[in-house]
């Protein structure tokens, strides 16, 4: 039987793997599906860590993570895209092969930095970088939302792996605030698609100096 530590490592690896695969997905349903898998791994990571450390209140955070990141946010995004008949095909500035090449160099840099200064775990820093890269290389609104949520997953992973144990009320507040943020982003993305008839961020050029 697998030990809890092994499960925890497995979930950590899954979280990183699914987030890495996100970058190559060029269809919205696949992008959302991989974000759901990554968030499920995050929930699993919180669960195993709470069992290892006997921290019962983290169980509520697991439930909250599943409700918000695995169920609510994907539904909100899918519905928002369907209502405006958004194109399921996502647009890139940079092709996945080139992106993975840049990402590999950056991850090596992070691994080196983590050795020198081990405050932020490698997984956490990598997720933050993946989120940023997703927001930079993609030209569509939904990838930017998923990129933002991946950054948030990275920050949540730091909270779990560093075992700082944020109180439940504060954690619930943070999750609720994030959900509100994603709902507002979904409303705005719908308005943008109604106004511009596209979800392409490169068409947002009205406000340049």
């Amino acid at each position: 039987m697998m030990s809890l530590t092994l499960w925890s490592n497995l979930f950590t690896a899954g979280l990183l793997m699914f987030s890495l695969i996100l970058i190559s997905k060029h269809r919205l349903p696949a992008l959302i599906r991989h974000f759901v898998f990554a968030s499920l791994c995050l929930a699993g990571l919180i669960l195993t860590n709470s069992l290892i450390h006997g921290d019962e209140h983290e169980m509520y955070v697991v439930i909250g993570t599943i409700i918000i990141k695995v169920i609510a946010i994907p539904i909100i995004m899918t519905n928002s895209a369907r209502r405006v008949h958004a194109s399921m095909q996502l647009k890139f500035y940079l092709k996945p092969t080139a992106t993975y090449f840049i990402l590999a160099i950056m991850l090596m840099g992070i691994a080196y930095m983590t050795q020198l200064f081990p405050v932020i775990p490698f997984v956490s820093s990598s997720l933050i970088i993946i989120g940023f890269i997703l927001m930079i290389i993609r030209k569509d609104l939904y990838s930017q939302i998923i990129g933002f949520m991946t950054i948030e997953n990275g920050i949540a992973t730091f909270g779990i792996l560093s075992m700082i144990g944020i109180p439940l009320t504060i954690e619930a507040g943070i999750l609720l605030t994030l959900t509100t943020g994603v709902i507002i982003m979904a409303i705005l993305s719908r308005q943008i698609q109604e106004e511009y008839a596209t979800g392409d961020t490169s068409s947002l050029t009205e406000l340049t100096e």
């Binding site: 609104l141 990275g154 943070i174 943020g181 982003m185 705005l188 406000l207």
Partner: peptide
Amino acid sequence: AAIEAAWKYIILCSIGISLGLL
């Protein structure tokens, strides 16, 4: 222009505040 401004605002400020959370 207003929607574009709002999109930039929420994305940049939310990322900024997330880094602040870290």
